[in-house]
Amino acid sequence: TDVGESARFIAETGADALAIAIGNLHGRYIATPRLNIGRLREIDARNGIPLVLHGGSGTSEEDFKSCIGNGICKINVATAMQLAATDEICSYIAADASPNYIDLKSRITEASRRVVAAHIRLFESDGKA
Rank of each mutant, 00 (worst) to 15 (best):
G4Q: 02
S6C: 05
I10E: 03
G14H: 09
A17R: 11
A17W: 02
A19N: 06
A21W: 00
G23P: 04
N24F: 01
L25I: 11
L25C: 04
H26Q: 06
G27E: 04
I30Y: 08
L35D: 04
L35A: 05
N36R: 12
G38M: 03
G38L: 05
L40G: 02
I43K: 07
A45N: 10
A45M: 03
R46P: 15
N47K: 07
L51M: 10
V52L: 05
V52P: 15
L53G: 04
H54W: 00
S57E: 07
G58C: 07
T59N: 09
S60V: 08
E61Y: 10
E61L: 11
E62V: 06
E62Y: 01
E62P: 00
K65D: 06
C67I: 12
G69E: 08
N70R: 09
G71E: 00
C73V: 12
I75C: 11
A78F: 03
T79I: 12
M81T: 15
M81K: 10
Q82Y: 01
Q82A: 05
L83E: 06
E88W: 00
I89P: 15
C90V: 11
C90S: 08
D96N: 08
S98L: 08
N100P: 13
D103L: 01
S106R: 14
V115K: 12
H119S: 09
S125D: 06
S125G: 09
D126P: 00
D126K: 13
K128L: 10
A129W: 02
